[in-house]
Design a protein around this nucleic acid. Structure first.
Lengths: 365, 365
DNA sequence: ATGAAAGCGCTAACAT
DNA sequence: ATGTTAGCGCTTTCAT
């Protein structure tokens, strides 16, 4: 509406009485320029309200100063917090941030990666939804820097950021054991990944064929921590206490938790593998009219806002989600800016938060 | 690493034995092409693994098929859910989505808008952090389609999406009144916007100078609903019951709520203006060892995950956040695709959710 | 229906 | 230090 069309570098050069090359050098901040010309160019640019066309620039340089993020579901507190971390760093470094959701399906993840690729992002942060068969990620990693967050992909040798899920889960369960609990239920997604299911997984661990955590999905890693904690205390793991929900959904989880609660010999404590499972567990406990911690104790993986203001507060294994996002974005941008070192596997520390949802049982140490 | 560089349309044209123009027509899906040539071109493209360079395309067409979203803070459940809605639509329509945070400051909002502008988005969805003095938004609106979400800007005539905050808040407070409550505290952000503060605002409303809701920030609109509900029931509004937190922060809100709870004549119910205030209110109620709804009733604006599984459940005024995001993105893309109609002000319906946090008082109807 | 040629706005050699 | 000249990869006249 403002009458004239957007000013280009040619317009600026003409008004300043210099070549477009000189104007470009001043405006783009590359090459040499005398302060005399620089002033003229700047003045002309100011006068014309010149704004560089990043598209034209990117077409030549091949860099867009934009990164992509493939989240599972951006509206979940987990990904939302990570996104904030990624966004913080992107903003600071003056990068754009393109986001997409995979809804934890490979098909959508492929679609997302393709979109980001077509938008020519300089790199991407992905929370891969499958630890295997990620050819599209392998292809992406050949075309640009790629950082994996929360999960890893077997055989894909790129930078990764996460927490030590095995150790953090072991710590959470160990607290329950230290409080005297012997029948501890676990509520976890545990989808696919392990072809032969929980029984085989337990057998393998017991038989000394310890799976390589790198190839495991987080909830399986957390199950491993649960098993480790039991082993360390000399307590046998009862497979009947492990609820394998099979999907990242509270609707699917609640009946599984109810099954645990309704069992003849009810567990005295529950350990949940992530925020969604914890929410479903709270609902199920409420539905059965049970009280925490009198009737049942609870420790949840992932710290959520409400855990601190419900009564009692809920104990949690807190992942530094925003920091995870920041770290991933920083590693990515380092790569984009040319860093060449061997792939890094960064593990940030998780924190055990105690709030009163664990009750001491008879026989506590 | 794969040996050859990325195939361009020139490579495809050469291999297919046609001109780049013809190749472009086939690959870009514009203009005419015989099925004979089309086949050849497609085959060549396939063979070379051709992927169009969107940058080059955008440079010519001036369209990037990317939209931007400026949120307050993407990690809050409110914005995260809206973002998901925006992202749903963007994904469906094959648009990229660039996101930024304003942290509710004008300076960062300007920075965000500038970034999006430079990235040449085709349009943007903004949740403006100030209802006045938004010159940067006015400028943006001249350069591209702009849709405002959750809030409006006085004098900026563009599409907007939100809920009827006045009516929805009135409904929530009316339920408390119907349950017999007469001393209802309100906890709200209520930052700036109204130069002379709450007292003057109340005077104005009472004096018949009803402010135009369009020019009000949501929490002020919700206060208006609170006042309306009182007026309709013939109950005088006690300014002492209104906690003006002044910032969108739980840390700032909690002491204010404690002040209300510690007052000589404690309110029998609280109405909170958004999720952050509700969380702070829960914490304060817990800190004083009060029980909901025995000691105090509560209705919160915005429905949050945990409200359904705490005991008792918390009553809420639920905004359809994901739908808000979807609607905003749809309106935006319609504009981008050329729709020319007068600016629309879309109001989606809020829902009153009852869960048991409101107790009937003496004198209830 | 197809091709030749001219750019989109900018940067990157290459001269000078 | 500055200007000239080519493009980046694609779309879009304009012929034919």
């Amino acid at each position: 509406m403002s009458g004239t069309r957007k000013a280009t570098i040619t317009d600026v050069a003409r008004l300043a009485g210099v070549s477009t090359a000189t104007a470009g050098r001043v405006l783009g901040g590359y090459g040499y320029s005398s302060s005399e010309k620089r002033e003229k160019v700047l003045k002309a640019a100011e006068e014309l309200g010149y704004r560089p066309n990043q598209l034209a620039r990117s077409l030549i340089t091949g860099r867009t100063r934009t990164i992509g993020f493939v989240a599972g579901d951006i509206q979940s507190p987990f990904y939302a917090k990570i996104l904030r971390g990624v966004s913080d760093v992107a903003g600071d470094r003056d990068f754009g941030l393109l986001i997409t959701n995979s809804d934890e399906t490979v098909a959508e993840e492929m679609h997302a990666v393709r979109l980001l690729h077509e938008k020519q992002v300089d790199g991407m942060v992905v929370s891969p939804c499958d630890t295997l068969g990620a050819d599209h990620l392998r292809a992406a990693a050949e075309a640009m820097p790629l950082v994996l967050i929360d999960r890893e992909v077997a055989g894909l040798d790129v930078d990764t950021v996460g927490v030590d899920n095995v150790g953090a889960a072991r710590g959470g369960v160990a607290r329950l054991i230290a409080a005297g609990h012997r029948r501890i239920g676990m509520v976890a997604e545990l989808l696919a990944g392990q072809p032969d299911g929980i029984a085989a997984f337990l057998d393998a661990v017991r038989g000394g064929t310890r799976p390589d955590p790198v190839a495991l999905y987080p909830s399986w890693q957390r199950l491993l921590g649960y098993i480790d904690a039991h082993d360390a205390a000399g307590i046998a793991v009862d497979p009947g206490l492990i609820a394998q929900v099979g999907s990242y959904s509270a609707e699917a989880a609640e009946p599984q938790v109810l099954r645990l609660l309704d069992a003849p010999e009810r567990p005295t404590a529950l350990f949940t593998a992530d925020g969604v499972m914890t929410a479903a567990t709270m609902a199920a406990i409420g539905a059965r009219g049970l009280s925490i911690p009198q009737d049942i104790s609870l420790v949840g993986f992932d710290d959520l806002d409400w855990m601190s203001f419900v009564s009692p507060g809920i104990d949690a294994v807190a992942q530094p989600r925003r920091q995870l996002g920041k770290a991933a974005a920083n590693m990515l941008i380092e790569r984009i800016e040319g860093l060449e070192v061997a792939p890094r596997r960064l593990k940030l520390a998780a924190r055990q938060v105690q709030r009163g949802s664990v009750r001491k049982q008879d026989g506590a140490g």
